[in-house]
């Protein structure tokens, strides 16, 4: 029984860790999206909407290309790749739209983000058709190389059998962490977040850099959306992002506007969310609603107690007027 108990526990641990990663991926990508935007002094509360819109466009593209009369995309991977690209581009365009409102029209960043969120909820809900069908989702990139029964199989079950976006997310976090603090682009981006006037004086084209960064910010939110419909859930539902974009912002603040810190925050949040669905497998009986609020409560406690007064980029949220 003990051995049996142990095997069940191992299974539950693996399931919890996998669920952690699954939950953390869209939030991590969303937090990197927020980070790129805020480091460029533009508040982005529209991540939620950008994710939703991209989740929708990627899904609809998949549905369109899955149609029997399209023979060009006989290869599933090719088709799904195009769909992910469509999702990412949708996000990028939404990012540019947000940038246009914030920079060109000097709309308050919070209002602009709210517009993005409502617009996305409206457009996706309006054009969504419940009868839409697709063929499959993104397959795992590398399958577990170890045999079942081998101890390493358990490690492999966590490390492998994941889709490409999951791995890409970790690469992206590393890349942004490097680029933000070790490259000319990063220095310029941080400078327009802190003091755009000074950056402008030194000859940096503030607006152009803001537009570029907002495109990438949107594209990352788009990748998160594409992950939801093309890799994770596999189908679109109305309002399926369910606050992930806002949680991504919380995680970004949790990580003090640092890419790796944000990743840690996302993993913590993902773990707490995963725990809630796994608790019953550990044999603990509590009302599931009360377990479900743990991740949110912990986020508040962590934010209030451990992070304290995080210092955001100094100029974030304010319009900059080139002289």
């Amino acid at each position: 029984m003990d051995i049996l108990g142990l095997t069940i526990t191992t299974g539950a641990v693996i399931a919890t860790l996998n669920a952690t990663i699954r939950q953390a991926i869209p939030i991590t990508l969303g937090s990197q999206s927020g980070l790129l935007s805020e480091r460029s002094s533009i508040v982005n509360i529209g991540i939620e909407g950008m994710m939703l819109m991209s989740a929708f466009s990627g899904y609809m593209m998949n549905s369109y290309l899955s149609g029997s009369d399209i023979s060009t995309f006989a290869d599933d991977n090719m088709r799904l790749g195009v769909c992910v690209l469509v999702g990412v581009l949708t996000g990028g365009l939404m990012g540019l739209f947000h940038a246009l409102l914030c920079i060109r029209y000097k709309v308050d960043h919070i209002i602009s983000g709210t517009v993005v969120n409502i617009l996305a909820a409206g457009v996706t809900g309006y054009f969504y058709n419940a009868q839409t069908e697709t063929k499959g989702k993104i397959p795992p990139l590398i399958s577990n190389p170890w045999e079942k029964g081998d101890f390493l199989y358990n490690v492999g079950a966590v490390l492998f059998d994941k889709d490409i976006i999951t791995y890409l997310t970790f690469v992206i976090v590393g890349f942004i962490a490097f680029a933000l603090f070790r490259t000319v682009w990063g220095l310029r981006t941080r400078s327009i977040g802190e003091n755009p006037r000074a950056a402008d004086t030194l000859g940096i084209n503030v607006y152009r850099l803001q537009y570029t960064n907002l495109f990438f910010s949107g594209a990352l939110a788009g990748l998160a959306g594409a992950y939801l419909t093309l890799a994770d859930v596999g189908v679109f539902e109305r309002g399926m992002t369910a606050g992930k974009g806002f949680i991504a912002l919380a995680v970004m603040i949790f990580g003090k506007w640092h890419p790796v810190g944000a990743l840690m925050g996302a993993l913590l949040f993902g773990f707490l969310t995963a725990l809630q669905s796994q608790l019953q497998f550990f044999g603990i009986v509590v009302p599931h609603q009360l377990v479900a609020l743990i991740p949110y409560a912990v986020t508040v406690i962590v934010l209030a107690g451990f992070v304290g007064r995080a210092r955001p980029p100094a100029h974030v949220g304010q319009a900059y007027e080139v002289e």
Partner: peptide, 8 residues
């Protein structure tokens, strides 16, 4: 435009 938020 109106200004509402004072940043973070």
């Amino acid at each position: 435009g109106q200004k509402l938020s004072t940043g973070w």
